[in-house]
Design a protein around this nucleic acid. Structure first.
Lengths: 144, 144
DNA sequence: TGAAAATAGATGCAGTTGCATTTAAATGCA
DNA sequence: TGCATTTAAATGCAACTGCATCTATTTTCA
């Protein structure tokens, strides 16, 4: 029976706690500003970054670590909200090419005003530059 | 307009990614072993720790960072599953005192066999002791 | 004391998720 | 070529969540 060390348990719990605090705060402020949830931000951002080449749903999915059906439903809602558009894909009749709309760009910018500020207030402002770099490096070691 | 630094953004994203990877892996392995979700573990653990004094739902709630209705529903399900029991509270007719059952203890132990192992494999084994301590310290700075 | 305020907990409803399956198109290969 | 396999995406269903509200007690304090 493997028992994780005290430091391991402490780091694990802190990771969970910090994530939860961050996440709920962001969602709460987005909602209070009548903006969509954080997942939508990631979709909008990916689409804005790759606007030229046109992204497919199945390409987006692994980037956001979402299940296939989750991706499908988010895209349906986002299209209904007018933030993205799905165009028929000429090379593949099963699929679609995703694009961000003008409204999508605007919404993403509004979201970033809130999201970016919280990222700074809750993380950036609480650690020194060096500490932040260390934290990112340690976390990245765990992400593989 | 506040823009978080690159390190801040990098740390933030890594935090989200690592949390998601960890969480999904744990949930998947628990489910594969026919065990309840992780939240239940926390409830069981808190109850096991404070067995002597008897915990109330409203005391448990802030520990687990759950909303009131979330707590209420989890406790209903866990009681239905026979893992905890709610007793009438002598000092407060509105409330109940929570206790873990024998089945609850057994289930928690089974869950820990999986959870603890993953905690070690995914976190403890990937960092040195010193790194783990640093990570915990940095995260704890953020949790306030 | 007794009426208003606060607290413990449950619940109806609408929206969201996980899972399994389905539809439809593309690919592989005998 | 033509049938089996794989892949892209959607969806029915049951379980779960957030929100607001409700019930039942307990506390407060005029």
């Amino acid at each position: 029976m493997v028992i994780p060390s005290d430091q391991t348990q402490s780091a694990w719990c802190a990771l969970y706690r910090v994530h939860k605090i961050f996440h709920e705060q962001v969602e709460a402020e987005l909602k209070a500003a009548n903006l969509p949830p954080l997942t939508w931000y990631d979709v909008l951002w990916e689409l804005e970054k790759t606007e030229h080449c046109g992204l497919r749903a199945y390409e987006l999915q692994p980037k956001l670590l979402l299940p296939q059906y989750g991706m499908s439903r988010i895209l349906t809602r986002m299209e209904a909200a007018g933030l993205i558009q799905k165009q028929e894909c000429p090379e593949d009749g099963r699929g679609q090419v995703l694009g961000i709309t003008e409204a999508g760009r605007t919404t993403r910018a509004k979201m970033w005003a809130i999201y970016g500020k919280l990222m700074h207030d809750m993380l950036g402002a609480k650690l020194s530059e060096e500490e932040t770099t260390t934290l990112a490096a340690l976390l990245n070691k765990l992400a593989k």
